[in-house]
C-alpha cells in the first residue's frame, strides 16, 4: 500500500519532469525556427525593368511597417493595407521614384511610425544611443567596483593570541 503511494508519486514526478523537458524542447525549437526564417513571403508577383528597381523594392518592403498589424513589415503582412502599400511601393519604384521619395510619401501620410527601422533624428536620439549609454554607464560602475576592491587591504596574518583563541574554539572549550 505504502509502496504504491511512493510509486505513484515517483510516476507523477517523472511525468512532471518529462512535461517540463518537452516544453523546454518546444521553446528551443520555436526559437530556432524563429531564427531561421520569418513568415513565408506573401509578395504579389513583381516585375521590374532593372535590377536596381527590383533591389529597391525588395529593400523597401522590408523597411516599412504595416501600420494595422504593428509588429510586421509590409513584406510579411497579410493585411489589406500592407498589400496596398506594397502595390504603391511597386508602382512608385517602377515609375522611377527614389527610395527616399517613397519613404517620404508614406511618412507624410502615416507618420514616422511607418518606418520599421526608425530614422536617426531629434526624437529618436535616445532610442538609438541608449544601448551604448547603458554600456558606458555599466562600464563605469564596473571600473569603480574593481578599483574599490583593489584598494581593500589584504587581511593580516593572525596574531599568536588569535590563533590560540581559534584553537580553543575548535576544541570546543
Amino acid at each position: 500500500m505504502n509502496g504504491d503511494v511512493i510509486q505513484t508519486r515517483l510516476q507523477d514526478r517523472l511525468y512532471a519532469t518529462a512535461a517540463r523537458l518537452l516544453a523546454l524542447a518546444g521553446l528551443v525549437l520555436a526559437l530556432a525556427a524563429g531564427g531561421v526564417g520569418t513568415a513565408a513571403p506573401l509578395v504579389n508577383p513583381v516585375d521590374f525593368d532593372t535590377a536596381e528597381q527590383e533591389a529597391q523594392y525588395q529593400k523597401l518592403v522590408r523597411e516599412l511597417r504595416c501600420t494595422v498589424c504593428q509588429s510586421e513589415t509590409i513584406y510579411e503582412s497579410n493585411a489589406a493595407l500592407a498589400g496596398d502599400m506594397r502595390r504603391r511601393v511597386y508602382e512608385m519604384t517602377a515609375a522611377g521614384a527614389s527610395e527616399q521619395e517613397i519613404i517620404d510619401f508614406l511618412v507624410q501620410r502615416y507618420g514616422d511610425y511607418v518606418r520599421y527601422r526608425p530614422a536617426f533624428q531629434a526624437n529618436t536620439v535616445l532610442l538609438w544611443t541608449s544601448p551604448f549609454l547603458i554600456l558606458v554607464v555599466g562600464g563605469l560602475i564596473w571600473m569603480q567596483v574593481v578599483r574599490q576592491r583593489r584598494r581593500l587591504v589584504p587581511r593580516e596574518a593572525l596574531t599568536a593570541q588569535e590563533r590560540d583563541a581559534l584553537e580553543r574554539f575548535r576544541r570546543g572549550e
Partner: peptide, 13 residues
C-alpha cells in the same frame, strides 16, 4: 473600393 484615397488620407483601418 481599392483604398486609393485611403492611402492618400493615411487611413489605417
Amino acid at each position: 473600393p481599392d483604398g486609393e484615397a485611403g492611402m492618400e488620407w493615411g487611413v489605417y483601418a
